[in-house]
């Protein structure tokens, strides 16, 4: 029983929240259309959170996430304005983000600097670059329709963004759960010294996790820009805490205390559903934050007490 609560409690909580909102607002919330729409609303947060999941798998933190989201949005518009073709611009943004991730990962693994400090510093640098690229202003215009379509519209009734979510989630899930690199990342996260002594290469594998996280954050920056049609140098600022909240919620699901992709999706879904449902019910934004925070605490506490009663 306790084992079931520990593994599936968070998923059950999500379902309970959905059912509760559906009863409270059957016409607006509990419609297939709205539920599909929630998948679109949670996409950006979920992709950032999946990036955070990779880094959490090796037992580290990436505080530069929000800065990379902002950077991705600004840099892509900057390149588009400079006349770079959209596909090339996107690749350049991902490559630049990859470099940032590689630097963080290398410093963390090779010199064993706390990832908190490293990514805080790298994030600050990226923030500075972003402001420098944009002169501190919101960038608008010169965004081709093809680029905007990356995050707008629907394909056979399903929002384009939802496909991004599914794609990224599947790839990340395969990487972490199905191929060898995932075993290595989790081994490092589980016990770095034991993994090292068993022949796992710490530096290169840690770098992979940080590179993945940075590239996903930059992807979100670009999707955000495509979605709203402009880029703001602080546009990603809101993602950091919610993304880690999603990961932590997810760590209470399916696996015992380990960051995992399905769990992160559940975590992101809880945050998105609560926001969507409470707005529909006309609850103020402040109250939404209070409720989201309480859900995270509740989830973690349920798991804790579950573990202790073992």
């Amino acid at each position: 029983m306790t084992s079931f609560v520990r593994r599936y409690g968070t998923l059950v909580a999500l379902l309970v929240i959905i059912i509760a909102f559906s009863i409270a607002s059957p016409i607006a919330f509990g419609t297939p259309n709205n539920l599909i729409n929630i998948t679109q609303q949670m996409t950006l947060l979920a992709i950032v959170a999946i990036g955070a999941t990779l880094v959490m798998a090796v037992g580290e933190f990436d505080l530069s996430t929000a800065a990379v989201v902002s950077f991705g949005g600004i840099f892509v518009v900057f390149l588009l304005k400079a006349g770079v073709p959209a596909p090339l611009a996107c690749l350049a943004v991902l490559a630049a983000a990859g470099v940032f991730g590689a630097v963080s990962g290398f410093i963390v693994a090779r010199f064993e600097v706390l990832s908190f400090i490293t990514t805080l510093a790298v994030g600050t640098i990226i923030g500075g670059i972003t402001f420098w690229l944009s002169d501190g202003a919101t960038l608008f215009g010169d965004i081709p329709v093809g680029f905007r379509d990356l995050a707008r519209g629907k394909i056979s009734g399903i929002p384009t963004l939802t496909f991004w979510l599914i794609g990224v989630a599947v790839v990340a899930w395969v990487v972490l759960d199905k191929v060898e690199i995932g075993r290595r990342l989790y081994a490092i996260g589980g016990n770095r010294e034991a993994a090292r002594l068993a022949g796992v290469r710490i530096v290169s594998n840690t770098m992979v996790a940080f590179i993945g996280s940075a590239m996903l954050s930059a992807l979100v920056g670009m999707l955000l820009t495509a979605r709203i049609g402009s880029a703001n140098p602080t546009g990603g600022g809101g993602f950091l805490l919610s993304a880690y909240a999603a990961v932590f919620l997810g760590m209470t699901a399916f696996r015992e205390g380990e960051a995992n992709v399905p769990g992160t999706l559940v975590g992101a879904a809880i945050i998105a559903v609560v926001g969507n449902g409470l707005t529909i019910l006309g609850v103020s934004t402040f109250m939404q934050d209070i409720i989201t925070g309480m859900i995270i605490l509740a989830a973690v506490l349920v798991r804790r007490t579950g573990t202790q009663s073992r």
Partner: peptide
């Protein structure tokens, strides 16, 4: 009514409006 979150006011406004439109 919606208290707009900063940073990211555009996307926040969009998500809020979508939800309000539902209702």
């Amino acid at each position: 009514e919606h208290f707009v979150q900063v940073p990211g006011p555009v996307d926040d406004g969009r998500v809020a409006m979508e939800n309000i439109l539902r209702q």
